[in-house]
Simulated assay, not measured.
Amino acid sequence: MQANDVMTQNVITVEPDTQVREIARLLMENRISAVPVVDAGGKVLGIVSEGDLMRRVENGTDQRKSWWLKSIFTGANDAGSYVKSHGRKASEIMTPKPWTIEESMPLEDVARLLEKHHIKRVPVVRNDKLVGIVSRANLLQGLALTSTQPSQAPADDRAIRDAIMKEIEDNAGVRIGGINVLVENGNVELWGLVDAPEQRTAAQVAAENTDGVNKVENNLGLAPRGVGGY
Score class of each variant (00 low, 15 high):
Met1Leu: 12
Ala3Leu: 04
Asn4Ile: 11
Asn4Tyr: 14
Met7His: 01
Met7Gly: 05
Val11Pro: 01
Ile12Gln: 15
Ile12Asn: 08
Pro16Val: 14
Asp17His: 10
Thr18Ala: 03
Gln19Asn: 04
Glu22Val: 15
Ile23Thr: 04
Ile23Val: 10
Arg25Thr: 10
Leu26Thr: 01
Leu26Gly: 01
Met28Tyr: 09
Met28Asn: 04
Glu29Asn: 13
Asn30Lys: 11
Arg31Val: 00
Val37Cys: 04
Asp39His: 09
Gly42Met: 07
Gly46Val: 05
Gly46Phe: 07
Gly46Leu: 08
Ser49Asn: 02
Gly51Pro: 02
Leu53Met: 03
Met54Thr: 12
Glu58Thr: 13
Gly60Ser: 12
Thr61Arg: 08
Arg64Tyr: 15
Trp67Glu: 13
Trp68Tyr: 12
Leu69Cys: 03
Lys70Gly: 13
Ser71Tyr: 06
Gly75Ile: 04
Ala76Val: 06
Ala76His: 10
Asn77Tyr: 09
Asp78Tyr: 05
Ala79Thr: 14
Ala79Met: 07
Ser81Tyr: 05
His86Arg: 11
His86Thr: 14
Gly87Arg: 08
Arg88Ala: 09
Lys89Ser: 11
Ala90Asp: 09
Glu92Pro: 06
Glu92Leu: 08
Ile93Asn: 01
Met94Phe: 04
Pro96His: 10
Pro96Ile: 07
Pro98Asp: 14
Trp99Ile: 12
Thr100Lys: 06
Glu102His: 11
Met105Glu: 11
Met105Pro: 00
Pro106Lys: 07
Glu108Thr: 14
Asp109Thr: 06
Ala111Leu: 09
Leu114Lys: 02
Lys116Phe: 05
Pro123Arg: 14
Pro123Lys: 13
Pro123His: 14
Pro123Met: 15
Val124Met: 08
Val125Gly: 02
Val125Pro: 00
Arg126Asn: 13
Asn127His: 12
Asn127Val: 03
Asp128His: 11
Leu130Cys: 06
Val131Pro: 11
Gly132Asp: 09
Ile133Gly: 04
Ile133Ser: 04
Ile133Val: 15
Val134Pro: 00
Arg136Gln: 11
Leu140Tyr: 01
Gln141Tyr: 12
Gly142Val: 13
Leu143Pro: 00
Ala144Asp: 12
Leu145Lys: 13
Thr146Leu: 02
Thr148Leu: 12
Ser151Glu: 13
Ala153Val: 10
Ala155Arg: 01
Asp156Tyr: 06
Ala159Asn: 10
Arg161Cys: 03
Arg161Phe: 08
Ile164Cys: 11
Met165Trp: 06
Met165Asp: 09
Met165Pro: 07
Glu167Ser: 15
Asp170Ala: 10
Asp170Cys: 00
Ala172Phe: 11
Gly173Glu: 11
Val174Cys: 06
Ile179Gln: 02
Asn180Ser: 14
Leu182Ala: 06
Val183Arg: 02
Leu190Asn: 07
Trp191Phe: 10
Leu193Gly: 04
Val194Lys: 02
Gln199Val: 10
Arg200Pro: 06
Ala202Val: 07
Ala202Pro: 06
Ala203Asp: 05
Val205Tyr: 08
Ala206Ser: 15
Asn209Thr: 03
Gly212Ser: 09
Val213Asn: 07
Lys215Glu: 12
Glu217Pro: 01
Asn218His: 05
Leu220Thr: 04
Leu220Cys: 03
Leu222Trp: 08
Ala223Tyr: 01
Pro224Val: 15
Arg225Ala: 12
Gly226Pro: 07
Gly226Ile: 07
